[in-house]
Structures are given as C-alpha cells and as structure tokens.
Design a protein around this nucleic acid. Structure first.
Length: 137
DNA sequence: GCCAACGTTGGC
DNA sequence: GCCAACGTTGGC
C-alpha cells in the first residue's frame, strides 16, 4: 500500500467538508498540474493519505482513503485531467503543523517541505509512520 | 499583502 | 526546442 498527502485550502474544500461527505466520499477534482495528476494515477484502491490544510492552518488534520482510482475529472472537458475519489477515515487526535514537520530532521525530505506547491504528494512509509505518531495515532 | 518558487504558455 | 513573460500557489 502506498501513502499520499492531499493539500487543500480550507476556504475551498476543508476537512469538515470532507468529513461531511462520509462514506460517500468525494472527487479530488480541480487538479491542473501534471505532477499531481501523475501521482493520482498511481493511486490504488485502499491507499491512504493525509489531508493537509494549506494557507491559514498549515497542518495535517485527517486521514483519507482512496475509494476510486483515477478517472476523468468531471469539472472539465479537457481529457488531460483526471482525479481519484477519497473518503475521510478519521480526524487525527493532534494535528501536525508544518512547523513541526520542518522541525523534524527525519521529515526534511518530505515533499510538503521540499516541494511546497505540489498539491498531491507521495509520502514514504517511514514518513507516514513518523507523522502518524506525531499526530497521536 | 508580499514575494519566492515554480509551472505553463506562446513567440520566435 | 528555447526562453521570456505571465499566472498561481502558498509560506511568511
């Protein structure tokens, strides 16, 4: 199983919005970046990811699961763009801030730190484990 | 609100 | 195919 990180501006699509969708989940649409799209194409059913609030909060607030693999993005006719569907699994007991991630030398290679503008990122298993424990999981 | 980083577009 | 111009993202 692979791990990912989904970044969203709370004002556009927040963790609360995602939670409200429950088991129905939601398309992770609107991605217009090749790297992010390529990451989504690699996702498989059951893969898990962090849900990160950018801008104001800058923290990992929840865990999501891939419930549908890459398919055309319904928000555009441009067939270049695809998206996956994700559903909320749980909120994290203790949100992990960007500041905390930056302060941890073992997480220095995370795309969250190195490639700040990428909205859909891969997370290694080692990084996943560390962040989970920081989050109180 | 500013600005650095980076991706995309389009002229040549 | 290069590169300048431009637009967007996101941290500060």
């Amino acid at each position: 199983m692979a791990y990912w990180l989904f970044k969203s501006e709370p004002s556009a699509w927040s963790w609360q919005d995602q939670l409200a969708k429950g088991e129905a989940g939601e398309e992770w649409d609107g991605v217009r970046n090749y790297q992010a799209r390529n990451n989504m194409r690699k996702m498989r059913l059951g893969d898990q990811g962090f849900f990160y609030h950018s801008q104001k909060d800058k923290e990992i607030v929840g865990i999501v699961e891939v419930m549908a693999e890459a398919h055309p993005d319904s928000t555009t006719d441009d067939e270049r763009w695809e998206c996956v569907d994700i559903k909320a699994v749980s909120s994290v007991p203790t949100p992990v801030t960007l500041e905390q991630v930056k302060a941890n030398a073992k997480l220095a290679e995370m795309a969250l730190v190195k490639n700040t503008r990428l909205s859909v990122q891969p997370v290694t298993e080692a990084e996943w484990d560390i962040v989970c424990s920081m989050a109180g999981l």
